[in-house]
Design a protein around this nucleic acid. Structure first.
Length: 178
DNA sequence: ACTGAACTTAAAA
DNA sequence: TTTTAAGTTCAGT
């Protein structure tokens, strides 16, 4: 069976240069400026920037590309914009992660949940640590809102750095504290 | 095949 | 306040 190819693009925004990857099935990765895909797991982990290696996503890259550009710009401007779940390509991911990401997607704009609540929503109430894993492994930052999950006692962690978690929550009118 | 760590948590020591 | 056990996945050995 032919393996579909993945095309990666840069997306310059008012908040730095993001990176997006598309497979034939849809958006399979969206990461923050200054983060790099760590092979296998932990996309979004901090690493050397690879800005410049990929072409800039242009309007003529197709509907999916335009939709993503517009949605990203809108979100960074504070608008409540979501992308349809079916536009993501989350194939071949471990079962619990898939359920956790789906549960993340269900968290409304501007609201937050704890890792415990996420684990329960994903079907395994005791898998709180795994919930953290799933957040860290989230391939589509922002639109699968792993930034809306905080620890029961504090802010919790964030692969790309807590600065980003705070920034993304502030875009939704939330302060990262408690 | 095992072990430890990972964006945790609640309860026990 | 510190320690521990728990569910899921992956990296390292």
């Amino acid at each position: 069976m032919k393996r579909f190819d993945v095309r990666t693009f840069r997306l310059p925004t008012k908040l730095g240069e993001w990176t997006a990857s598309f497979s034939d099935a849809g958006l399979c990765e969206l990461r923050l400026p200054g983060t790099l895909l760590k092979r296998g797991r932990h996309p979004g982990r901090v690493g050397k920037s690879d800005a410049g290696v990929y072409p800039v996503l242009k309007d003529q890259e197709g509907v999916a590309g335009q939709v993503l550009r517009d949605a990203l710009a809108a979100r960074l401007a504070g608008e409540r914009i979501d992308l349809p779940w079916h536009s993501f390509d989350l194939s071949s991911r471990p079962p619990f992660f898939s359920r956790a990401w789906r549960a993340l997607y269900e968290i409304p704009f501007g609201e937050v949940r704890t890792y415990g609540q996420l684990a329960a929503a994903a079907g395994s109430p005791a898998a709180v640590r795994a919930a953290g894993q799933a957040c860290g492994a989230n391939p589509i930052v922002l639109f699968i809102p792993c930034h809306r999950v905080v620890a029961s006692n504090g802010p919790g962690g964030f692969g790309a750095g807590l600065e980003w978690k705070r920034r993304l929550l502030e875009l939704e009118g939330r302060k990262l504290d408690s």
